[in-house]
C-alpha cells in the first residue's frame, strides 16, 4: 500500500496527475466529437449527394474498425501525413505532434462518428410541424435550425450523448499505446516497475468507476434541466 503514497516513494501523485490527463483528454475529444459530429450530421441531412455519401463512408468506417486501429493510424502514420500536408504549403521544418493532440484527434474522430449518428437521429425526429411553423413565420432556414430544431434535437439527444461520453471516457484508456501518461499507461508502467498488477489496475478500475458515477449524476442533472418545460 505504501506504493500509493504521494511524492517520491509512491505512485500516488503520478496516478493523480494521470487521472487529470485522462479527464482533460476525454473532455477535449468529447467536445471535438460533439462539434464535428453536429457538422457531420448537418452535412448528412442537408447537403448534396456527394457530401452525404462521403460522410456516410466516414462514419461507417470509423465506427466499424477497432479504435486501436484508428489510434495506430494517427500515431504511426501521423508524421507522414502532417509533413506531406505541410510541404504542400512550402513548410519543411519540424512539426511537432504532441501525443495529447494525437489522442484528442483520434478519440475525437471516433466520438464524432457516434455523435453524428445520434444528432442525425434526433434532428430527424423533431416534429416536421415545427419546421413548417417556423417557415410560416418567415424565418430563414438557418434561423429555424438554430432556434427551433436544434434545441429540441439536443434535448432528445441527451441520453445518447451521455452514453457517448461514457464511451469516450473509456476509450481514453486505449491511448496508453501511444505513451501518453494517462491512467492506463501509468498503471502499466507502475505494474512493470513494481510487479504488483492487482493493486494498480484495481486502483485504475476504481478511478474509472468513480468518473463514470460522477458523469451519470451530471447527466441526470442536465437531463432534468433540459426537460424542465416538458410536461410529464
Amino acid at each position: 500500500m505504501e506504493l500509493l503514497y504521494w511524492g517520491n516513494n509512491g505512485w500516488g501523485d503520478e496516478i493523480f496527475f494521470a487521472s487529470l490527463v485522462t479527464i482533460a483528454l476525454a473532455v477535449c475529444s468529447y467536445a471535438l466529437g460533439l462539434v464535428l459530429g453536429l457538422y457531420i450530421a448537418m452535412g448528412k441531412l442537408y447537403s448534396n449527394k456527394i457530401v452525404k455519401i462521403s460522410l456516410d463512408g466516414y462514419t461507417t468506417v470509423v465506427r466499424g474498425i477497432p479504435e486501436l486501429l484508428v489510434i495506430y493510424l494517427l500515431f504511426f502514420g501521423g508524421e507522414n501525413i502532417i509533413t506531406q500536408i505541410a510541404s504542400v504549403f512550402g513548410y519543411d521544418g519540424f512539426i511537432n505532434l504532441p501525443p495529447f493532440l494525437i489522442g484528442v484527434l483520434a478519440i475525437g474522430f471516433i466520438s464524432a462518428s457516434y455523435s453524428a449518428e445520434v444528432f442525425r437521429g434526433s434532428i430527424k425526429s423533431v416534429h416536421k410541424g415545427q419546421m413548417e411553423a417556423g417557415l410560416s413565420l418567415c424565418l430563414s432556414k438557418d434561423k429555424i435550425f438554430d432556434k427551433i430544431t436544434l434545441p429540441q434535437a439536443i434535448r432528445i439527444a441527451i441520453p445518447s450523448l451521455g452514453n457517448i461520453w461514457q464511451l469516450t471516457l473509456k476509450d481514453t484508456a486505449l491511448i496508453s499505446v501511444t505513451g501518453l501518461a494517462e491512467i492506463m499507461r501509468i498503471s502499466r508502467v507502475a505494474t512493470n516497475s513494481e510487479r504488483e498488477p492487482f493493486l494498480f489496475f484495481i486502483v485504475a478500475a476504481c478511478i474509472f468507476l468513480f468518473l463514470t458515477s460522477v458523469s451519470t449524476k451530471i447527466q441526470k442533472i442536465i437531463e432534468k434541466k433540459y426537460n424542465r418545460s416538458m410536461v410529464r
Partner: peptide, 21 residues
C-alpha cells in the same frame, strides 16, 4: 455497473496479468 463502467482494456489486463498471474 462494474463491467459497463470500466474500460475493456482494464478488464482484460486484470484478468490476465492480475487473476491469471
Amino acid at each position: 455497473y462494474y463491467f459497463r463502467g470500466t474500460p475493456l482494456l482494464i478488464q482484460i489486463y486484470l484478468m490476465y496479468f492480475g487473476f491469471g498471474y
